[in-house]
Design a protein around this nucleic acid. Sequence first.
DNA 1: CACATTAGTGAACAAGTGTACACATCAACA
DNA 2: TGTTGATGTGTACACTTGTTCACTAATGTG
Lengths: 193, 193
Amino acid sequence: MGAALALVGKGRHFASLGIREVTRQAGVVPTSFYRHFRNMDDLGLQLVDELGLVLRRMMREARANVLQSDKLIEESVGIFVAHARTNRNFFMFMAQGLAGESRAVQEGIRSEMRFFASELANDLRRLRLMDHLSDADLDLTCDLVVRTVAFSLTDLLSVSPDDDYQIGQIRKRTTRFLQMIFVGAGHWQSDGA
Amino acid sequence: MGAALALVGKGRHFASLGIREVTRQAGVVPTSFYRHFRNMDDLGLQLVDELGLVLRRMMREARANVLQSDKLIEESVGIFVAHARTNRNFFMFMAQGLAGESRAVQEGIRSEMRFFASELANDLRRLRLMDHLSDADLDLTCDLVVRTVAFSLTDLLSVSPDDDYQIGQIRKRTTRFLQMIFVGAGHWQSDGA
DNA sequence: CACATTAGTGAACAAGTGTACACATCAACA
DNA sequence: TGTTGATGTGTACACTTGTTCACTAATGTG
């Protein structure tokens, strides 16, 4: 799995990886592959599971650092950007998987995103933010937030991880996106929406 | 190019396609490939160019059908969904390319999206909507809109093109996303954003 | 310690891959 | 009509690929 991630991190697309290639990168003989996975799709699914853990770690950190901050959005985006850098390969895999060729991997990632959105909704409820929104509308908002952040991922991954200036730009832009969404959510249904 | 698109439409990822595979689908001998393209990346780039045309056609239709409608957002999303169905393979290619393995294709698609966003900004200016926004903020809004629609693409492409119910759901949800964004844009900078 | 499970090995095979080269076909135009 | 440029063909070569099978090394548990 590490070998596959490493190749993805080098710019290869997961769908184009072969068993021999992965085992070669892992420093192991091709047949060993079958001791762990039935095929590449299987490997992909297990990567999605690990991706889930990465995302949960990120959420935990965000909750810890953000609870009483007034710059909730800015902080959260910062944590996201930091994690995207630390776990670059995982996030690359995620970005690829959304339109990947394995339906199962696709669905897995989608499901991780849904989970993330629902946790975000819980947090906002708990913090008594967006109290005027119905459950459905809060859901809508969180879904939109998660999508926006996920799309920023593709921006983030398309620049060098050392290009602090560009990364800063993306962080600022993403923050403004979210601010605009929350302004919209704040006025939702109180006007002609 | 048609053959490559057809394979993508069948669920394959562009990055995993080979020259022989494409020529086989095209009903032509492998060596013929080199008469038209230098390699698969080259083919990808030419597909991006054609994708540009598809998007422009869509924009033209949207402008024609939407000028004096009060349901501007709803109509536009409808046109988008319709085009996504008609040109399913092109849009699949687009969704894949955003996180694809050819940097050039990636940049090409990204650039098409920027163009689309800037045209949208022009239209909004012309229609005297969002008149209170600075150029930069209008840009921000349009970028966010285009991203949101692009992400909906992955939803759209993950369901069967004949599943009218699910497609309708996606259309409605996307519409609400955009409405929320525009509500946010409408109140932008007038409150604590 | 012995034993069972797990992980890794090496050789083999049929099939598929990218690419090179010389040759054939065909449309368009002088 | 003859020539030319674009497109397609057939053969060939050196690799790479997925998967199989029988075998070995290491691991931890009774």
